[in-house]
């Protein structure tokens, strides 16, 4: 049996009266895992516990068999990228990464080479001798990631590495994280955006209000969501024509019209979109707005939380 890299046992963390996480037990043996949850769910708290930045109020956290908050040896094998920006704006990217690589245990004479290699891997070689203060958000994120990998850690903990970056930088960062993971590193990455995690891994841990709602395969969780009707909201110029077509479809379970707005519920969103498309092409319906309130992570949480504790067990499909 593979020894766990991270083992969290009945762990709770309070910040004064505020609950960070509550009675979480979780084991990570390798690979890439995505921590999903809305802001304030407890993702960062769990990551800080694993990185050794904070201690649990109750329970235990072990990384490589040791409590990270008390073990510099365990922390030496961790690369942690915090959510917040650095305040090292007066340093160049190279100086920043070199400094942190040295503090992580890279010998002084090797630290510059390690920094250059890491910055190069993150696509920052061309800008590494410029001050961080002049970097864009995406460049800062990549520099932070370079500082995280420069000492070649066995476990990477990346807290919201894609927050605030533009789509091109986001794609680049995702690609680089995937490459790191392909080298066999264990990666924990958090986000509150489902598709960002989806691009990195299929294994997720869903946290909500400090508790684990689901732990396992992403697609299994999505299939759970597909079992319930999806809501679709359409604003168009001929709502009654479109509503009649939707009402005639077997997969549509509910249609309501209010003014120019249609609210429909369907068991098959793709087929429903086909009906809407046909109404546009055949009947000349002009759709001004088409939204699905269920098509985001918030709906996942709503679904999981509204269904009692049924889904809190590990999903193993």
């Amino acid at each position: 049996m593979t020894a766990p890299i991270v083992r969290v046992t009945r762990c709770s963390k309070w910040y004064g009266p505020v609950l960070g996480i509550s009675d979480i037990s979780w084991t990570l043996t390798g690979g890439v895992i995505g921590l999903l949850g809305p802001n304030g769910a407890g993702k960062s708290t769990l990551m800080k516990l694993a990185a050794g930045l904070i201690r649990p109020s109750r329970g235990t956290v072990e990384v490589f068999g040791q409590a990270p908050a008390d073990s510099p040896e365990a922390r030496r094998r961790i690369g942690y990228s915090p959510e917040h920006e650095s305040s090292y704006d007066d340093l160049t990217g190279r100086e920043f990464v070199r400094f942190l690589a040295h503090l992580a245990g890279v010998p002084k004479q090797d630290a510059d080479g390690a920094a250059v290699t890491a910055l190069d891997a993150m696509g920052m070689r061309g800008a590494m001798d410029r001050k961080i203060g002049g970097y864009s958000k995406g460049m800062r994120q990549r520099t932070k990631l370079a500082a995280t990998i420069a000492h070649d850690p066995d476990l990477l903990i990346l807290d919201e590495p894609l927050t605030g970056v533009d789509p091109i930088a986001r794609a680049e960062i995702i690609d680089r994280i995937r490459k790191i993971a392909a080298t066999g590193k264990c990666v924990i990455v958090s986000s509150h955006v489902l598709y960002e995690i989806e691009a990195l891994t299929q294994t997720i841990l869903v946290i909500y209000r400090g508790q684990v709602l689901a732990d396992g395969d992403l697609f299994a969780i999505r299939r759970l969501i597909d079992h319930r009707p999806h809501r679709i909201r359409i604003v168009c110029d001929q709502p009654r024509v479109l509503a009649a077509r939707l009402g005639a479809a077997a997969h549509v379970t509910k249609v309501e019209v209010e003014g120019t707005t249609i609210a429909a519920e369907t068991n098959n969103p793709d087929a429903c979109y086909d009906v809407i498309g046909e109404a546009v092409t055949d009947a000349g319906v002009k759709v001004e707005e088409l939204t699905s309130p269920d098509n985001n992570l918030g709906a996942v949480f709503e679904y999981l939380t509204s269904d009692g504790n049924r889904h809190r067990a590990r999903i193993t499909e």
Binding site: K48, A51, G52, L53, P72, E73, R75, R76, I78, Y80, P82, H84, E85, S86, S87, Y88, L100, L103, A104, G105, A147
Partner: peptide, 15 residues
């Protein structure tokens, strides 16, 4: 050791 930067040093292998 400010809120937005402490993590860099806290997460290193040093007391």
């Amino acid at each position: 050791i400010g809120e937005k930067s402490a993590a860099y040093l806290w997460s290193r292998a040093l007391p």
